[in-house]
């Protein structure tokens, strides 16, 4: 490992420099320092997620109902499949990274180049999938009504399958209003995007459709959400319904407690940002490999150091995968 350091001529002396405590070079040691501290940051986030989850343990959304989409397969409920694919892509790109490191040990420039290239491609596929997952999550699926206390009312048919608000709400063309913009009225007042339907329209739709019931967030002892009876459904919606929610943002989300969406955006976003910076580092190293920088240096240790970071990103994803999608 000593090949990256210029010799000082005093190597024989203990304090003469060129020593490598724990037989790891300076750069590698610093990468491990960073990884350990970053691991603590991530575990702080995931533990905070656990805190909120334990706090709302009886009403937490069921991950299998939230992440059910796969690109190009519209309208099919396929929980886990896409995220399993993403996990596999990331592990696979980790493998090509180790292979690049291994080829570096044999000073095989051509192989290192190709393996680095595949690693970068894997990273890009992962970040792209992440973006798609976010877009789907933000756009939403069925819609829900938020009550005055901030709880959610979702809608199911007699068999317990989810029903989208757009499929039963009775639109009232007289109640329509346009979103207020700064240019068309008070210039100092802002308004967010309006929901497609008002609560009244949803109430009318519920009254008109005999077989639609309201589902609350509360989990029963079997881990299923509680479905109200027909009369309770109408009463609950009429008395407490306040806002129609479609999709998710940092304030509201149609899947469950708003803090669930907040943690989802924050933790997967922070991880996605790590993947992104990993890709940038990999590209820099990739070009250095092509230019022959490490060939001339006689050591591909830089590939190994960036590789450590890349594996760490994979390692974090393994935990995010478990705590967001499985548990």
């Amino acid at each position: 490992m000593s090949t990256t350091v210029a010799n000082t001529g005093t190597e024989v002396k203990t304090w003469g420099g060129g020593n490598e405590p724990l037989r790891a070079s300076y750069g590698k040691m610093m990468m491990w320092f960073f990884i350990v501290s970053d691991a603590l940051t991530f575990s702080g986030f995931i533990a905070a997620y656990g805190f909120s989850r334990f706090k709302f343990i009886e009403t937490w959304p069921i991950a299998d109902e939230v992440f059910t989409h796969v690109p190009f397969l519209h309208g099919q409920e396929l929980p886990m499949i896409y995220v399993a694919f993403m996990t596999f892509v990331l592990i696979m790109s980790s493998v090509t990274m180790v292979l690049a490191v291994d080829a570096g040990h044999h000073l095989n420039k051509k192989k290192v180049t190709w393996y680095m290239f595949f690693t970068i491609i894997g990273g890009i596929i992962f970040v792209g999938s992440q973006a798609w997952e976010w877009a789907t999550f933000i756009k939403g699926d069925y819609g829900a009504v938020q009550t005055r206390s901030g709880n959610l009312l979702q809608f199911v048919d007699a068999e317990g399958h989810r029903v989208a608000i757009r499929d039963f709400a009775v639109a009232d063309s007289h109640a329509e209003r346009t979103q207020h913009e700064r240019k068309s009225g008070l210039w100092f007042v802002n308004e967010g995007t309006l929901p497609t339907y008002t609560v009244d329209e949803v109430v009318k739709g519920l009254e008109a459709n005999e077989d639609i019931l309201v589902r609350t967030e509360l989990l029963d002892e079997n881990g299923h959400k509680t479905v109200l009876s027909r009369s309770e459904s109408i009463q609950q919606l009429k008395n407490n319904g306040k806002l129609v929610v479609e999709g998710a943002n940092l304030h509201v989300n149609e899947y469950g407690a708003p803090i669930f969406a907040d943690f989802f955006f924050f933790i997967t976003g922070f991880h996605g940002f790590h993947v992104f910076s990993g890709i940038v580092l990999n590209i820099i190293i990739f070009f250095n490999v092509i230019l022959g920088t490490y060939e001339r240096r006689g050591s591909y240790e830089m590939v190994e150091k960036v590789g450590l970071y890349w594996h760490f990103v994979d390692l974090v994803w393994v935990f995010v995968f478990t705590f967001f999608y499985l548990v």
């Binding site: 905070a48 805190f51 334990f54 009886e58």
Partner: peptide, 13 residues
């Protein structure tokens, strides 16, 4: 960290 946060989460619940 996990012990402290989960314990407190359960308490708040």
């Amino acid at each position: 960290l996990v012990f402290i946060l989960l314990q407190e989460g359960g308490y708040v619940h």
